[in-house]
Amino acid sequence: MKVAVLLAGVADPRHPLTLRSSRPPEIRRDNPLVFSPFDEAALELALKIRDGRRDTAITAIVAGGAESDALVRKAAAHRLDSVARLESEALAIWDVGATAHGLAEALRGLATRPDLVLIGREFGDFDDGALAPCLAAALGWPLFDLAQFARWEGDELILVRDGRSAEERLGLRPPWVASVTNDRRNRLRHPLMKNVMEARRRGFDVLTVAPVVPSATLKAVAPARERTRREPCRFLTGSVENQVAELAAYLQPWRALR
């Protein structure tokens, strides 16, 4: 099984965001980066697949500029078969179409075609979940959404997610794209110090793809308006019984099906 993991990294949420530039690559450069929970879940899923079958080969591609080299090494510390950085300037990462196109190009450029592409359900700081389906469309491959876990049954790899009413399983017949969401079972393991140090010494390739004309232009970038509600909290009033009744009515659309 050949697995390609696409990783992006996000500005570390534990630090205040520095916003000096309106260019996404520069915003990325100005802030400490970490893998997002979805990046980590995708990487761990690949490692789980390799745990089950030692002949699994994992390639990780980190999309970013030179500031992302530490992330590349962080991925490499899991003793992957190959790691590379994909120069992200050409990806126009605010534009889903351009990014999907660029990632698909990079995947097509790999020496061997992956059987499975794993990507976090959100890819980096500028995606809200639109990218993974567009990547699958750009590759012309099917997509398994929000995968949570993977296991081998004999020679067959099974991807698993919690559906609404049932656990959903896909017996993989390559090629597929799977978007991965975080789950107790795919919390990223810690690499061994030995491999962290080896990863520091090891070099990696920097991939480039030809830029495409983005389908969207970036008109403005600004700090989010403070996360207080534009309208202040609506405090329910009256007797507690009245308040409970009003809240029950508010929650009605999310009632469980019997």
């Binding site: 500005a11 965001l17 916003l19 605010w94 232009t217 989010a224």
Partner: peptide, 20 residues
């Protein structure tokens, strides 16, 4: 179309525009 989208974990808002 022009539209506003929340990014960077809700810390940055961008305005994107596209033709067609």
């Amino acid at each position: 179309v022009e539209a506003r989208r929340s990014t960077c974990g809700g810390r940055v808002e961008i305005v994107v525009a596209a033709d067609g």
